Structures are given as structure tokens and as C-alpha cells.
Simulated scan of single mutants.
Amino acid sequence: MSITIDRPTTASRILRRHTIITTQGMDGVLAVTAELRACATLVKEMAVDVREGVGCSALTCSVSMTAEEAADFAAHLRTLPAVESVDPY
């Protein structure tokens, strides 16, 4: 006897955490959050660390997406002037 399981052919979405380093203080963070707002239903959590007198800020978010979408997501965010890096957590 053999048992087969039908697997979906489409890639499944999972929560993927990214850390985004920005410059330009609060303005840089707000530019990134404006981009994240476009995929608001996919963003499950977000935390921001902005400190006065520090050159860079950190934004960490978990977004529900496929592996391919994650690569496109990071590439798109890197095009923003305030973004220094986008790294998987």
C-alpha cells in the first residue's frame, strides 16, 4: 500500500523577518513605513528603533511572503534613498 499526498504547486507564504537599516532619522523610517503600508495586510509585526544623535535607525518587520516575493521585497526597499541595508533576520 502506498499513500500519496497532493501538495500545492504554488509556493506558500510564511512569515519572513527583515531588518532594515535607514538613514535620515525619522524621515527615513517614515519613508520605509510608507512602502510597508502598501502591503499592510502582509505585515504582521513591526518595531522601530530611532535614537537622537545616531546616524542610522533600525526597523524590523515580519511580512507574510514567498521566497521569491522576499527577494523582490528586499530589492525594492534597497532602491529607497534612505535605506542602507535590508537583511533577513
Rank of each mutant, 00 (worst) to 15 (best):
T23N: 13
C39H: 05
E69V: 03
V32A: 08
K44H: 05
S2V: 06
E35Y: 09
T19D: 09
A74E: 12
V48A: 05
L77A: 08
R37P: 01
I14V: 15
T66L: 03
T9V: 13
V54C: 06
E68Y: 00
E35P: 01
T33G: 06
A47C: 07
G55T: 14
A82R: 01
E68V: 03
S57C: 10
A71C: 04
R37W: 09
G55M: 11
E68D: 06
E84R: 15
P81E: 12
A71V: 07
S62Q: 12
E45G: 05
V32T: 10
R37H: 14
S12N: 15
T19Q: 12
V32W: 01
A74M: 11
G28K: 00
A58P: 03
T19M: 13
T66Q: 01
A82M: 13
T33M: 14
T79Y: 12
D87T: 15
D6Y: 04
L80C: 08
V63S: 00
A71Y: 07
T41L: 03
S2M: 04
V43I: 01
V50E: 00
H76G: 08
L36V: 04
V54Y: 11
T10G: 03
E35K: 04
A82T: 09
P81Y: 15
D27Y: 07
R7M: 01
R17E: 12
A40R: 10
L80R: 14
E69F: 05
R16E: 08
